[in-house]
């Protein structure tokens, strides 16, 4: 019974924290630009507002267009619930390993890209085609990161990986460093952050994600924005869980360690959010056809890390 409870807490936790994280990143970015910025709880207000509004649906939108926001949201939510946040070994962690989590995010993107094509405007098409191009490069890089991690920890199961890295002395490794850089690059691309895409703009010719969801409104848009925040949280949780499993609670160690784990998790989220905002403020967005080089570098880093591990386990 308590397994289900902890798992439920995790599912609700990611749901509650995701908009806060987005608000926090926006706030920091605003402060770095010497602006006052909106309150950190603004994303919650936006979501509530969107949820209450009516949906304006294009005349020729099909059922797929209406189903996609829910499917996308559900796929990302399930994926986010499977990444250990404050504790490892949760009840459903065994349902899917890291490869399956990557594929779940792939499902979400597949449907979103289809929805972009559904109404038949040029904006949707341009967004979808660029999104799948980015994904076609980001996914192999992500899988090479998975290979690299699996070679070190001997598992693709996130709980096992986190426990392994937290418990034993792994130390500083070149290959893990490369994998971490690769993962961060992939995370930036997957979450449509600067320098790959700009989450704050709406009308810019190199836009990707925002163009794809241009036709969405009301509760549908709320679901998609919520999904996007969840995805950002998921990637940060993933980086934290694999590379900084510091103070993460092992399943069954009691409420106190859960509480410590939760506090540590919040600290990690805050730090990561701060660095993300700092990085985004300090970097310019790149042209869309520079993105392949960016992601190609991530792919090569992943491959290099993997090959180094083949040369010697101690790299």
């Amino acid at each position: 019974m308590s397994d289900i409870l902890v798992q439920g807490v995790q599912m609700l936790l990611v749901l509650l924290l995701a908009p806060l994280l987005t608000g926090f990143v926006r706030k920091i970015k605003a402060r770095l630009l010497r602006r006052q910025g909106a309150s950190v709880i603004q994303p919650y207000r936006d979501l509530l507002r969107l949820l209450r509004k009516e949906v304006v649906l294009a005349d020729n939108a099909s059922w797929l267009f209406r189903v996609t926001p829910y499917v996308t949201f559900a796929a990302i939510w399930v994926a986010a619930a499977l990444v250990p946040t404050f504790a490892t070994g949760l009840l459903f962690n065994w349902t899917a390993d890291l490869i399956a989590i990557v594929a779940l995010l792939g499902s979400a993107r597949f449907f979103l890209a289809l929805a972009g094509m559904d109404v038949g405007t040029s904006f949707g098409g341009i967004g979808s085609s660029r999104e799948v191009m980015i994904a076609a490069l980001a996914e192999p890089a992500m899988l090479l990161f998975v290979f690299c991690i699996a070679l070190v920890a001997g598992s693709t199961q996130l709980s096992t990986v986190a426990n392994f890295i937290a418990s034993s002395y792994v130390g500083l490794r070149v290959s893990l460093g490369m994998a971490m850089i690769a993962l961060i690059m992939v995370a930036l691309a997957e979450n449509a952050r600067i320098p790959v895409d700009n989450p704050a703009t709406h009308l810019e010719l190199t836009m990707v994600h925002e163009a794809m969801v241009l036709e969405y409104s009301g509760r549908h848009l709320a679901m998609i924005e919520f999904g996007a925040s969840l995805k950002l949280l998921l990637y940060i949780s993933l980086i934290a869980c694999v590379f900084l499993p510091w103070k993460i609670a092992v399943f069954g160690t009691g409420p106190l360690s859960y509480a410590i784990g939760a506090v540590a998790y919040l600290v990690k989220l805050t730090t990561a959010g701060f660095f993300l905002a700092l990085f985004e403020t300090a970097t310019a967005k790149m042209r869309v056809f520079r993105v392949p080089q960016f992601l190609g570098a991530a792919l090569m880093l992943g491959l290099l890390g993997t090959l180094l591990l083949f040369v010697s386990k101690s790299f």
Binding site: V56, L214, E215, G218
Partner: peptide
């Protein structure tokens, strides 16, 4: 709990 209203209109396309 939120809204179930829906209106059809021509595509927006900016």
């Amino acid at each position: 709990f939120a809204s179930r209203a829906l209106r059809r209109s021509p595509a927006w396309g900016c």
